[in-house]
Design a protein around this nucleic acid. Sequence first.
RNA 1: GUGGAUGUAGCUCAGCUGGCAGAGCUCCGGAUUGUGGUUCCGGCGGUCGUGGGUUCAAGUCCCAUCAUCCACCCCA
Length: 416
Amino acid sequence: MQGPKGTYDVLPKDQPLRSRIVHTAGRLFAAAGYGRIGTPAFEETGLFVRGVGESSDIVRKEMYSFEDKGGRSLTLKPEGTAPVVRAYVQHGMHKLPQPVKLWYYERMYRFERPQAGRYREHYQLGAEAIGSGAPQLDVEMIMLLSDLYEQLQVPDVRLRLSSMGCPVCRPDYIERLQSYLEDVLDGLCRDCRERAQLNPLRVFDCKEEGCLARLEDAPKLVDNLCDGCLDHFESVRGYLDGLGRRYKVDGTLVRGFDYYTRTTFEYECRRLGAQKGIGGGGRYDRLVEQISGPVTPAVGFGTGLERILLALRSAGAEAAAAGTDVFFTVLDDDAWPLVVKSLHSLRRSGIAADTDYAGRRMKGQMKQADRLGARFTVIIGEDELKSGKLAVKDMQSGGQEDVAADELEAYIRGRL
RNA sequence: GUGGAUGUAGCUCAGCUGGCAGAGCUCCGGAUUGUGGUUCCGGCGGUCGUGGGUUCAAGUCCCAUCAUCCACCCCA
């Protein structure tokens, strides 16, 4: 037996580092005024088709879509933004003070061939600020993600920045790009020749040397922005410069979803193998109206938990699990009533307590106490039951003292 | 969807030109009465991914299939 392709189990030993990441993010996002939102694991398929775009790879071949018993077409969410925007519209959040700032930690599903840092089910942390077109908000987003990586000490993170323009400048630019591509078409690979027709911006994703060389002189969208988009872009750059956040303007940065407008950004980490993108996002001023909300500008990002983990572990990061405070070693069955009561009472007052349920010999029980990282071991056998004094061993010093049963909690508490 | 590598104990792996399935780690127990981490000893644990084929004999050779990993595509 094994889990489905591209999925993995999160075992107890994996948990501490993951919680550290999520808690760090939660604190950071809350400090910037973001409230956490949860959205369903699946949505109507149409939401993603309209939101992410029909020409995107996600919609064309990566969606986990299925029909439910009521004949509805549903899809396990492949990305986080469209569902959040749907919730924004559905709950009338456009009536709230704008912008509405939300963050999430959710599972995403994409039908792809798994490889290093890529799964069919993966976890993403993300944030969306809906209802403002201010460039300062783009900067807030970029810095939020930057600060997250910094606080987590993700190594070797670099920022690429670009602009996707808007409905005013992008069509003009695409025409220019297409006519340029026609001139060099013969020198391009098969994929690129197809892209030139379907989704010309995608040619910049190509890694073929021949294509790269021919695309070097291609017009870039960042150099062909309309006045409004250029102002916006310059403004974002100005604030980033002022904050000392280093970045590289990269006209070949093309994000995968159709909904992006103006600012796009991507963080890369060189420690991730082939999947070097660790997180990214951008502005999507048209998405809210595309899914039948009012015209509403917005900006957001997503970052992959597995990629952060990969980067952190490449630097040797591991968080320690919480240990046990007290372990009860039971040497006589008559001790059980006392042990059961003590366990319950200690735990209720917040002291981590455990005992042996496997019928081990004393030595095995001591070993188990050691494995659990117990600070104290309470030994209860025939002698202790007779005297009413429990043997409490300090596992660090190795010292041992007799403690009356009803003083145990106070004794432990005073020494933790 | 395409390409490459790899599937042997819970984990990491060895097993040569076909000849009785191994080690280390983990787990349980023991090293004279009830004391962990170190050491020594013993024990538990395997349809050799699966199905065919060749052979007196297949973990080993051949074919197919599935899975995992890595890379392409694309993305987090």
